[in-house]
Simulated assay, not measured.
Amino acid sequence: MTGRTETPPAGPDRASEARRLIDSMEHAKSIGEGHFSALGMLINDASLCADEAALVAVQDGLQWLHRAHYLDKANLDPDQREERGRILGLIDVAHWALRRLPSGLQLGLQPGGHAARFLQSVASHPGMNNQQLADALGTDATEVSRVGRKLLSAGVVWRRKEWRHNAWDITPRGREYLERAGLLTEAPHHEGSPDTLPPPTRRPDLA
């Protein structure tokens, strides 16, 4: 089966959609590009939103499909061998997406801890640099770098360079994690309030 790409749902019921797609793949005469594209988009969306149930549904469903129709089959034709390779590739992608979920990495944010406050700070003030975070957390730049590396490996923050400084932003996965933990507080900061932070450092020639 080939043709147009199916669009996975934008809502929270990705696990049901994953099962529906894999069931459709099982009963198709040949697995088309639309199936693989839809599953790829679903895995990407589930990873960004930390949707563990959807990723588990994809991984389990594809592993079952591989065992039932491709494992130890010596007489596969070229198209079936390509399907098997792409299915194994998606299984690997789902596996590593699950491994990188904050829960899988046992991120375990403690309210008031440096990791939680780091995430809360960059959620409220995107683009904060190491020194600004150190001031906000009441610690030093070395601790900020250590915590930042941990959060970066969990996929809950992004790090970019602004001239000589790191600038930190929260990812969709990080925001979802804060929401689930009940730690997302984005009250507006009014000019002149004690906790208003200075803007990120800019290059002098761009000021």
Rank of each mutant, 00 (worst) to 15 (best):
D45N: 14
G11C: 10
N44G: 10
E52S: 14
A15M: 09
A10P: 09
V58Y: 00
G11L: 10
A57R: 01
V58F: 03
G40W: 04
S47F: 04
M41K: 08
Q63A: 09
R14Y: 05
G61D: 03
T2A: 15
H27W: 05
S30P: 02
A38M: 02
C49G: 14
K29D: 15
H69G: 06
A38P: 03
L55C: 10
A46H: 01
I43R: 08
R19G: 07
I43M: 13
D13W: 00
D13M: 05
S16I: 08
H35W: 04
G32I: 00
P8Q: 06
D45C: 14
P9W: 01
A68L: 11
I43T: 11
Q59S: 13
E52P: 03
K29I: 12
A57L: 03
A54W: 00
M25G: 05
L48C: 10
P9E: 09
G32N: 00
K29V: 14
E26L: 07
R67Q: 14
H35L: 05
P8M: 09
P8Y: 04
A57H: 02
H35Q: 10
T5C: 11
G11R: 12
G34L: 05
N44V: 15
A46G: 08
L62S: 03
E17A: 15
L39T: 00
R14I: 09
G40C: 09
E17V: 13
G11F: 05
A18M: 08
K29W: 06
D60C: 07
Y70C: 08
A46R: 00
L21A: 09
L48S: 08
P9H: 04
G34A: 06
R67S: 15
E17W: 13
G32K: 00
L48F: 09
T7G: 09
R67K: 15
V56D: 11
H66N: 12
P9R: 03
S37R: 10
I22L: 00
S47E: 02
D23C: 06
G32E: 02
A68M: 09
H66K: 11
I22Q: 00
H66F: 15
T5P: 01
S16T: 12
A15L: 10
T7C: 11
G11T: 12
D13R: 08
E6C: 12
R19D: 01
R19H: 04
G3R: 01
A68K: 15
M25N: 01
S30Y: 07
Q63W: 04
A50N: 03
S30Q: 12
L65Y: 07
E26Y: 07
L55K: 02
A53K: 05
L21Q: 03
D23M: 10
A15T: 06
E52G: 13
H69K: 14
P12Q: 08
L62A: 04
E52C: 14
G32W: 00
T5M: 08
H35M: 06
I31F: 04
R14K: 12
M41V: 03
C49P: 02
R67M: 13
S16R: 07
